[in-house]
Design a protein around this nucleic acid. Structure first.
Length: 111
DNA sequence: TAGCTGACGCCCT
DNA sequence: CAGGGCGCCAGCT
């Protein structure tokens, strides 16, 4: 396990319930914009982590639940998000802009 | 050891 | 407006 993975997990755990962020935002925050794919790859291995990682709060830049097929069932991700008060239609988060949680802004003065 | 792939994102046609 | 291609970094075959 590399630091990159750890940083991703650490960051994802800081996402407040009811909020979501994007792979690109995380990648950019970690200093590697464009490496959004890596973030997804890291989350793919999040299941190997002992601590729970709210991977369902990470979606693509359009608010699409692109990673839902990597959960137990394709609807698990959506249900988890809905359980946190988010509205989802057609695999996409409604009001994504308002629910978006930008690590660069939220943690800018906290690190 | 070299090459392919992947839960993305942006640019070009 | 839609489709295709390249870049990003690390793990796996």
């Amino acid at each position: 396990m590399n630091d990159f993975f750890f940083q991703v997990y650490q960051l994802v755990r800081k996402i407040p319930p009811g909020r979501v962020t994007s792979y690109g935002a995380i990648a950019a925050y970690l200093g590697s914009p464009g490496a959004a794919r890596m973030v997804g790859w890291a989350l793919n291995a999040s299941g190997s982590q002992n601590e729970f990682v709210p991977a369902h709060r990470v979606v693509n830049r359009s608010g699409l639940l692109t990673g839902k097929f990597h959960f137990d069932t394709p609807r698990t991700m959506q249900e988890l998000l809905e359980n946190e008060g988010l509205k989802i239609a057609n695999g996409q988060i409604l009001n994504f802009e308002k629910k978006f949680w930008d690590p660069a802004k939220e943690l800018k003065n906290k690190l």
